[in-house]
Every structure is written in structure tokens, then in C-alpha cells.
């Protein structure tokens, strides 16, 4: 698999505070990578390192296979567009002027794409209104337009729907999906709004205390989260035989426990096991969503502790 971004044992410290503590992650090309973590877990710090705003204390970071200490990283970063925390826009300028300024910084030969870009983010009718009079959603969309000015292959969005109204959230979501599907742009989105990420992401990385604790694809996550029954029995072989007989999908998790997927007739299974001399010790129905998966992964007790940096 080809990766746009890879990090290996990345560390970043601010004085005595460790923001990233050996973070390793892989963002596949063409994916929408949902970067999930609570406040203070290190999401924004990682994004700052990727964008070259800060330098790692230890470890390595590669963008398109080029290391962060390589001189060629400056050229590679031209393939990158990002909105870090708040949109980087001149508040005294109009949307068009802001884009022209970014085109000049990029050294683009003409401004003819600007109208199309404004239309893409839904700001084509803002005229002479300066960015300081824009709503939060409009500023966010202008920030994305600026990030798209250099026609990037890799777009990084840090909490893109924070503070937006429901309509704004839907618009940003549709825009991200459009960019990914129609332009093939790889997107890294950090967020703690899990429901929103679940609607977008093709891959997930879960970060806690400066480390990625789990990386998986949306399909793997769906499999991990799907409806299942956890069963504990006295004879696991009898259980397997009965489940095979019913044609059910299952996974043995220990010598006395298993997880059964799909629709299950509990009475029929219990009778079948009784006939085999196997007793059912416990039965739990589980139906995890992304949120409960995340809580289970990082520990709900620690989830209350939030650190804003």
C-alpha cells in the first residue's frame, strides 16, 4: 500500500510536557483518515509537525516518503494543504483577495481558477464582504479554499466542523467527500466529533496520550463494532459444534468464551447446548458504535481528563 504520511516513534516535548510520545501512524493514499482523540491527546501537535510549523523532538516523519530532515521536504510540502485549528485568513481582505494573496505566495501564474475555487466552497457570492464579517462556517470554507489553492494531493483538516451549525457541518462533510472522490485528494481529519467522522472516514487512527493506540480501516472498524453476542460456556467445543450446525459466524475469544455475529435464536442454541451437556454461564448482547469503541480503547475513566494546549 502506498502511504502519503508515515510517522515512526515521533516525539514532541514542550519543556517537561510530552505532547507526542512515540507516535507511529500510516495514512494510505486516497483515504479519508479520521484522527480520533480527546483534547490534549496530541492531534494538533502532530498536524503542526506535519505542516512544518514545529520540529519533532525525536523520531521520524515522512511525507510521500521524504523525511522531515531531508532538504526536499520543502518541495514535497507544496503538495500539502492544511487548515490548522483556525483558518489562516486575512480578516481585512475579501475571499477573493485572500485567495489572490495565497496564489502569489504559491507563485501561481494566473488567478483564473479563483472563481472556480470560490464556487467549490460556496463563497462565490461574497463580493466585497471582508472575512472579518464572515460567519464561522464561511471562514472555515475560505480556509479550506486557501488550503486547496495549490491543488494539493494531501489535505489536512484540524477539527474542521468545530463550532459549525448543522447546515455548516453537512456542507463541510459534502465538500470533503467531493474532494476525495472527484479529485482523489487524501484527507487527514482530526476530530473528537465521532459521529461526524464515522460518516466520512475510510481509515481511523485512535490517539491517546501522544500515541496511536490503534489504526484500522472503516471495514475493520465496522467488523469490530457490529452487533454480536458474547457467550461464556462450560464446553467450548460443544458450542463451536452447535454454532457450525446453525451456520453462524463466530470467533472464539478464550477456552470458555466466544463472540457470535448475526441474528441468533438464543432458545434454540441453549436447548442444543443442553442436549450436549454444555451449560451457558453468561450471555451479553453487544452493539458498539464508534464512540463506545473509542471509549473502550482509550479507557473511559481517563477520558474525563482533558488538557487544552
Amino acid at each position: 500500500m502506498e502511504y502519503v504520511l508515515q510517522t515512526s516513534d515521533l516525539k514532541k516535548t514542550y519543556g517537561h510536557y510530552t505532547a507526542l510520545n512515540g507516535l507511529s501512524m500510516n495514512v494510505p493514499k486516497g483515504s479519508i483518515y479520521g484522527f480520533v482523540g480527546k483534547n490534549g491527546s496530541g492531534k494538533t501537535t502532530l498536524i503542526r509537525l506535519v505542516c512544518g510549523l514545529q520540529q519533532p523532538t525525536e523520531g521520524e516523519l515522512q511525507i510521500y516518503g521524504v523525511g522531515h530532515n531531508d532538504r526536499a521536504i520543502s518541495k514535497v510540502r507544496r503538495k500539502l494543504g492544511a487548515v490548522v485549528e483556525t483558518p489562516s485568513i486575512y480578516l481585512s481582505m475579501t475571499a477573493e483577495e485572500n485567495l489572490k494573496e495565497q496564489y502569489r505566495i504559491l507563485g501561481m501564474p494566473s488567478f483564473e481558477d479563483i472563481a472556480e475555487l470560490l464556487k467549490l466552497v460556496g463563497l462565490e457570492n461574497t463580493g466585497k464582504k471582508t472575512a472579518k464579517n464572515f460567519s464561522l462556517g464561511m471562514r472555515q470554507r475560505l480556509g479550506i479554499a486557501i488550503a486547496l489553492a495549490g491543488q494539493p494531493d494531501f489535505l489536512i483538516l484540524d477539527e474542521p466542523v468545530n463550532g459549525l451549525d448543522p447546515q455548516g457541518i453537512v456542507e463541510i462533510r459534502e465538500l470533503i467527500l467531493k474532494l476525495n472522490r472527484e479529485r482523489g485528494i487524501t484527507v487527514l481529519i482530526s476530530s473528537h466529533i465521532l459521529d461526524e467522522l464515522a460518516k466520512l472516514a475510510t481509515h481511523f487512527g485512535f490517539i491517546d496520550r501522544g500515541r496511536v493506540v490503534r489504526e484500522l480501516s472503516a471495514a475493520e472498524l465496522e467488523s469490530a463494532c457490529r452487533k454480536r453476542v458474547e457467550i461464556a460456556v462450560t464446553d467450548i467445543k460443544a458450542l463451536c459444534k452447535a454454532l457450525d450446525g446453525f451456520g453462524l459466524e463466530y470467533a472464539v475469544t478464550s477456552d470458555a468464551r466466544a463472540e457470535i455475529y448475526g441474528e441468533l435464536d438464543i432458545t434454540e442454541l441453549t436447548l442444543k447446548l443442553y442436549e450436549s451437556g454444555c451449560r451457558v454461564l453468561a450471555l451479553n448482547e453487544r452493539n458498539e458504535d464508534l464512540e463506545s469503541f473509542y471509549i473502550n480503547l482509550v479507557g473511559g475513566d481517563r477520558n474525563e481528563q482533558t488538557i487544552d494546549r
Binding site: 505542516c51 512544518g52 510549523l53 521536504i73 520543502s74 518541495k75 514535497v76 510540502r77 507544496r78 500539502l80 494543504g81 492544511a82 490548522v84 485549528e85 483556525t86 483558518p87 489562516s88 485568513i89 486575512y90 480578516l91 494573496e101 495565497q102 505566495i105 504559491l106 486557501i146 495549490g150
Partner: peptide, 13 residues
């Protein structure tokens, strides 16, 4: 206004 980031992110030293 954070616009210095726009210069750094696209590779200006």
C-alpha cells in the same frame, strides 16, 4: 491571523 502558517506549510523556508 495565522497567515504565516500558509507560507510555512507550502515550503517557504
Amino acid at each position: 491571523e495565522g497567515t504565516i502558517r500558509n507560507k510555512l506549510m507550502i515550503g517557504h523556508t
